[in-house]
């Protein structure tokens, strides 16, 4: 598969196939970020759609030769922030039946979520998502980007429009709090 820069360049020059390929390349990671951030598939679906719509409308502001992925993540970040403000709450809480993982169709027509079966335990994922939902939005995002999405602190700072120092602090505090929450849950489960 071509890299994101080439796809974006072809898309800007009017190649619709390149956009579909770009979507296939970026959407899975971006959707994971949004689901973990918004904690609800339906909200994440909407945010993903809005993000790509904004990318589409703003494609003339793209700079040829640049990596579009951090830019697209920044647009997703802004979309989430705006949506959260609109709903006047930082954490979008939902009923447990919307909590992941679940079966879903992907772009290639596969019915199962993409996952590394050897590493994914649905219960653990559910616990982590529950604990993540208890973090302030800025810390939650920092943890998702740096600890779950594998981005560097500099990349995460660029996406969130903050300084590297501030992102480092958010990621550290968020991670510590997440571990404490997960530890607390583990202890409660063992006691019961």
């Amino acid at each position: 598969m071509a890299d994101a820069k080439d796809l974006m360049a072809r898309y800007v020059s009017g190649d619709a196939t390149a956009f579909r390929e770009l979507y296939a390349l970026v959407a899975p990671r971006l959707y994971g970020y949004l689901v973990k951030l918004a904690r609800q598939r339906s909200v994440a679906d909407d945010l993903l759609q809005q993000t790509f719509l904004k990318v589409h409308r703003a494609r003339a502001t793209y700079v040829l030769g640049a990596d579009p992925v951090p830019w697209i993540y920044s647009i997703a970040h802004r979309t989430f922030i705006d949506e959260a403000r609109k709903q006047n709450r930082a954490v979008v809480r939902v009923a447990d039946d919307d909590v992941l993982p679940e079966e879903a169709a992907d772009l290639a027509g596969s019915t199962a979520d993409r996952r590394d079966e050897s590493r994914v335990d649905p219960e653990l994922v559910r616990d982590t998502l529950d604990a993540l939902a208890e973090l302030p939005a800025s810390q939650r995002e920092a943890v998702i980007l740096t600890k779950l999405d594998g981005k560097s602190v500099a990349e995460a700072a660029q996406i969130a429009g903050t300084t590297v120092g501030a992102m480092k602090v958010r990621a550290h505090r968020g991670y510590e709090r997440l571990r404490a929450l997960l530890g607390g849950r583990g202890n409660r489960e063992e006691a019961s």
């Binding site: 772009l107 979520d113 994922v125 999405d149």
Partner: peptide, 15 residues
């Protein structure tokens, strides 16, 4: 738990 969540990538909806 964190590694499990990092490895989990939900499938996005189609365009």
């Amino acid at each position: 738990a964190i590694a499990s969540t990092a490895a989990w990538t939900p499938a996005p909806p189609p365009l």
